[in-house]
């Protein structure tokens, strides 16, 4: 039962963080939400008994992809058009 609860919670968090990416107008915050999304999906992979993929997603998805997103945001601009 507790596993099911954790499972549902992670999936709920996934959808919430994806919606956060949709609504955030500050791109840096959106990048961090996207990192959170990657981290949660790696947790979900772990729950689904895929530790290999979980490590890979945590290292590549949550770590490096967020890093290159932040670098790209520094190289372009921080806010979406129409912000404030």
């Amino acid at each position: 039962m507790i596993e099911l609860l954790a499972h549902g919670l992670v999936l709920f968090g996934l959808i919430v963080s994806a919606i956060m990416v949709f609504y955030m107008q500050d791109l840096l915050a959106a990048a961090l939400a996207s990192g959170l999304f990657s981290f949660l999906i790696s947790l979900e992979f772990y729950i689904l008994q895929a530790p290999d993929v979980a490590i890979s997603q945590a290292g590549i998805g949550a770590g490096l992809t967020t890093a290159i997103f932040i670098i790209a945001i520094r190289g372009t601009k921080r806010f979406e058009e129409g912000h404030r």
Binding site: D52, A54, I55, S56, G59, G63, L64
Partner: peptide, 25 residues
């Protein structure tokens, strides 16, 4: 460690390489 124990424990070239690259980052 993750790279070298890829055939025994979860992990392997991609995961370990990504970890090392994260450290470099």
């Amino acid at each position: 460690y993750v790279i070298m124990h890829g055939h025994l424990t979860p992990g392997g070239g991609f995961q370990g390489g990504a970890v090392v690259a994260t450290g470099a980052a």
